[in-house]
Amino acid sequence: MRVLVVEDDPVLGQGLQSVLKQDGYAVDWVKDGESAILFMDSSEYTLVILDLGLPKLNGLEVLRHFRTAGKETPVLILTARDAVADKIAGLDAGADDYMTKPFDVDELAARARALSRRQTGRSTPVITHGDLQLDPAAHTVTQGGVVIEFSGREFSLLQALLENRGKVMSKDKLTESLYSWKDEIESNAIEVHIHHLRKKLGNNLIRTIRGVGYVIDKPE
């Protein structure tokens, strides 16, 4: 659940970072096109939020470069250009969604969720696993109808595991999806979060594959 924000306006960039962090994303924020390409090439993102009017390399060029390289990460264009022709050009260049400035923060968050959901091959908003239900929009988890409280990172970790049910997630991969490159990470951070999740949800849900990582099994 890691998002790359490409935006050259400092106030807007900072605001986007705060909003997305609140929603449990790990956020990297860059301010020009060249840095955007550098970051896109070096990390796996769930979503890229891309401004078009960027210094050094404009957003459309960044997007074309990205798609030419075969990357399939959803890209949401967030720009002041509101002409239909601009929207068409953006979507045709490989964007998955297009929003114009100024925008509503809740709409942006909803679109971000929708795009990340599609990215994980899911179309229903709520993830159900047995009697466990995770609602990314409401940021709630219920087990047998009882609401269970989680911290932001715990929630993101649980979501990442549930979205990849049946797949063993390495510690590195989980770290990458949970933390932005600026975050200071304790070496045992993932273990600590797993420990907390198990305390709240029971030990049977998340299995440890020794030396490889963690997995939530697919329901039979």
Binding site: D9, V11, L12, G15, L16, S18, V19, Q22, D51, G53, A80, R81, T100, K101, P102, F103, D104, V105, D106
Partner: peptide, 26 residues
């Protein structure tokens, strides 16, 4: 108009953040 939209988007975003923010420092 385009140049004005970006700072306006920033203003709106920060204002919405203030509405949502419970923490005084934030």
């Amino acid at each position: 108009a385009h140049e004005l939209r970006t700072p306006l988007a920033g203003i709106k975003l920060q204002a919405q953040l203030i509405l949502k923010q419970q923490d005084d420092a934030a």
